[in-house]
């Protein structure tokens, strides 16, 4: 940690307080907009002190509360399992790539990086997953495509191992007769909690925020929709029905009753709050990794 004078410590706090406000105020605005009466919103725009409150947006979202809660369940399940697998696979791939002297490690690193630049596109990926692996309409459809491992995270983690884990520590462990796996688990990982926390956070957020897998691969089993699927569908449909109403004359929706802007805001709130609740617990890993063994770099 950087050691600095008292005066120098004030500056970071001041700056961070300002930045925090910059991030929190819009969320607050969202929150207020989501409980503002729709007509008031239309007439007066967004306000921190709305003239008239209404819970209609939340009523609309939770009117099918069963759907919403089941979708929360699906999302939690997928996020937890997916993140665990993601972190595991990332560690296992990144660690050997960080070991100096591993033959062909640059080739493999290149192959990992290459996937970040080139991809076959949605259609071939879809054809493969739906017609070769048949994961459509199963829970695997939410877990496997795209998010199970990110090459970006692999490279980040490899970098961390390279710069923060001294070779001497690993060599020492091996001299003690530890296997590669044992060295990884008992020596390297305890020193790597910050990066594991980061990768876990990135992976978890990716799963939490994802609605594309559900959209592409869930056709009939709508009970497998994640919360983001339910919310984005609500959003898309309201938007679509309200905006193209004239072309769909026959769709007898009492659209006056559906708050559109408010629902959007409420949806954002409903999707963000759980992350805000869980995130502080993940932060525990953002402490200095413990160095095991007496060797220091």
């Amino acid at each position: 940690m950087i050691t600095s004078s008292k005066a120098a410590k004030i500056i970071p706090n001041v700056v961070l307080v300002i930045l925090t406000l910059l991030c929190v105020i819009p969320l607050l605005l969202l929150l207020m907009a989501s409980i503002t009466d729709e007509q008031t919103l239309t007439m007066n725009g967004y306000s921190f002190f709305p003239a008239k409150f209404s819970a209609a947006s939340y009523q609309y979202i939770f009117k099918a509360s069963q759907t919403v809660f089941r979708a929360y369940g699906v999302t939690f399940f997928v996020t937890i399992i997916g993140t665990a697998c993601n972190v595991l696979m990332t560690v296992l791939l990144a660690y050997p790539l960080a070991r100096p002297g591993l033959p062909a490690r640059n080739v493999i690193a290149f192959l990992v990086f290459f996937t970040m630049l080139f991809n076959g596109g949605l259609v071939p990926t879809y054809i493969m997953y739906s017609q070769v692996f048949h994961i459509r309409d199963t829970i695997f459809a939410l877990l496997i495509p795209t998010f199970l491992m990110s090459p970006f995270n692999v490279i980040l983690m490899r970098n961390y191992f390279k710069t923060n884990i001294p070779d001497a520590i690993i060599e020492a462990a091996k001299l003690d007769g530890a296997s590669e796996l044992k060295t990884l688990i008992e020596v390297v990982l305890p020193m790597s909690t910050p990066i594991i926390g980061t990768v876990g956070l990135m992976a978890g957020l990716a799963y939490w925020n994802d609605w594309t897998n559900g959209l592409y691969y869930i056709v009939k089993r709508t009970d497998l929709y994640s919360i983001q699927n339910v919310l984005t569908n609500m959003l898309n449909n309201i938007q679509f029905l309200k905006s193209s109403a004239q072309q769909l004359q026959g769709v007898n929706l009492e659209m006056g009753a559906i708050p559109s802007v408010g629902v959007r805001m409420a949806i954002a709130v409903v999707a963000v709050i759980p992350v805000m609740v869980v995130y502080p617990f993940i932060q525990k890993s953002f402490v200095k990794g413990i160095v095991i063994g007496g060797v220091k770099g």
Binding site: M89, T115, N119, P124, M149, P151
Partner: peptide, 14 residues
Amino acid sequence: PGLAYLVINNYLPM
């Protein structure tokens, strides 16, 4: 595991 996933998820659809 990691490489196999890259093959499936990234290289095959290429």
